[in-house]
Every structure is written in structure tokens, then in C-alpha cells.
């Protein structure tokens, strides 16, 4: 183990212990470690954006490109300028223009992706599960496929029913709304079960991932201590 490995290994062990000190509550060591990580991430992000986005994709074409190519970069340059001007209170309204452009574009892309990439394909998958052509000739497998498709359908409808909050107006009393239909209430209860199972699976996955990270840290610390003791 050379000096560099020793130093950086010690720094790694020290930071790991500082983060684990949160077990006894919020303390100075934990806050120092968090500030170090946040500062490093921020600094690295700035350098990354400058080197990988601003310089190669904006400044270089503006400097070395032809006039026809430069025209294409007027729009992003204008947006950047407006966004910077938006930080000045007097020109705050100007900063809304690029933000509105970003919000609108993000919404368009996200909605398009959600509808055509998730909603329609997933609905189609639920329907296709009942397609007999998808089943094989084995009776046992066919029954399992029907059962699988039925559970999927009930789970889908139940989950959607759980998030159905619409109610009709009570004609006798404008102030009160009628109760949701019984079918929605019943399916909503079933949907709760599916939602609970889903969240439980996500929680188990999060637990598993965190445990792997803990094991990795223990391995690193153990190896560091072993190298210190073993001298190699």
C-alpha cells in the first residue's frame, strides 16, 4: 500500500464512519460529511456542464462555425441570456420566457411518453393476456395464464378505482355530495391490497440495495484495516 492509497483509503473510512454516526442522531460529523458530498457534487457538476455541454455544444460551434451554423445557436444563446437576466429583480419577467419554454417542452415530451409509452402499451398488455392465441396447448399453463391475466386485470381496475375520487352532487342538498358508487368502493379496497403489495416490493428492493451498499462499505473498511495490519 503506497502513501496515496493509504491517504485516500483513510479518507474513505473516515467519511464512512462520519456518515454512520447519524445512528446516534444528527451531529457535526454527519453534517460535515454531507456538506463535503454536496460541495463535491456541485463542483463536479459545474465542471461537467462546462466541459461537456457549454464548450463543445455551444461555444465551439459559435466560434468555429460558419454564419449559417451560428444562426442556429442564436436561440439557445438568447435563452441563456434571458435566464441570466431573470436573476436580476428588475428583469425578472424576462426569465420566465425560457422557463415557460422548458416547462412546455417537458410537459409535451412527458405526456407523449406517458400516453404512448406507458398507458397504451400497458392497457394493451392487460387485454392481450386474455388472448387465447397467447396460451399454449397445455391446460395447466392455460389456466395459469387465465389466472395471471385475471389478477392483472383486477389489480389494474382496483388500483384505478382506488384513485377515483369523483362524486355526484346530492340533488336534495347542494352542500353534500353523494357517496361514490359501491362498485368503486369495493374495487378500491381491492386496489389498496395491490398498492400495498407494490409498495412492499419497492421497500424490499430499497432494503436490499441499501444492504448491498452497507456490505460494500464493510468490505472496504475491512480491507483497509486488513492492509494496515498486514502491512501490505
Amino acid at each position: 500500500m503506497n502513501v496515496s492509497e493509504l491517504i485516500w483509503g483513510a479518507v474513505g473510512v473516515l467519511l464512512t464512519v462520519m456518515v454512520l454516526s447519524y445512528l446516534i442522531g444528527d451531529n457535526v460529523l454527519f453534517q460535515i460529511a454531507v456538506h463535503i458530498f454536496i460541495g463535491l457534487t456541485g463542483g463536479y457538476l459545474v465542471v461537467l456542464i462546462i466541459n461537456h455541454i457549454l464548450l463543445p455544444q455551444l461555444m465551439t460551434p459559435l466560434i468555429a462555425g460558419s454564419w449559417s451554423e451560428k444562426v442556429w445557436f442564436i436561440a439557445p444563446l438568447l435563452m441563456i441570456t434571458l435566464l441570466l437576466l431573470g436573476q436580476i429583480p428588475r428583469f425578472k419577467s424576462l426569465g420566465n420566457i425560457p422557463l415557460a419554454y422548458l416547462v412546455g417542452l417537458t410537459a409535451a415530451i412527458a405526456i407523449g411518453g406517458a400516453v404512448f409509452g406507458t398507458l397504451i402499451p400497458q392497457s394493451r398488455a392487460v387485454i392481450a393476456a386474455f388472448d387465447p392465441s397467447q396460451w399454449d396447448g397445455n391446460t395447466e399453463n392455460s389456466l395459469f395464464s387465465i389466472l395471471d391475466a385475471s389478477i392483472m386485470l383486477i389489480g389494474t381496475v382496483g388500483t384505478l378505482s382506488y384513485f377515483h375520487f369523483g362524486r355526484k352532487r346530492n340533488p336534495k342538498n347542494d352542500q353534500e355530495a353523494t357517496q361514490p358508487p359501491m362498485i368503486f368502493k369495493a374495487l378500491g379496497k381491492i386496489g389498496q391490497v395491490f398498492i400495498g403489495i407494490t409498495l412492499g416490493a419497492v421497500f424490499a428492493g430499497l432494503f436490499s440495495t441499501s444492504l448491498v451498499a452497507l456490505i460494500d462499505r464493510i468490505v472496504v473498511i475491512g480491507q483497509f484495516i486488513g492492509q494496515l495490519i498486514g502491512g501490505g
Binding site: 398488455a125 428492493g205 440495495t209
Partner: peptide, 22 residues
């Protein structure tokens, strides 16, 4: 492991060819 359960439907719908989780 934490991302796997919520992306499994995309494999079942055929949008994803294969996946390994956890």
C-alpha cells in the same frame, strides 16, 4: 433491486427485451 419491481411490467408488455434486477 429498488428499481426492478416497477419496471417489470414493461418487460411483460414486450417493450423491454430483457432485464436483470438486484
Amino acid at each position: 433491486a429498488q428499481a426492478g419491481p416497477l419496471l417489470l411490467p414493461y418487460w411483460e408488455s414486450g417493450q423491454v427485451t430483457g432485464m436483470i434486477s438486484g
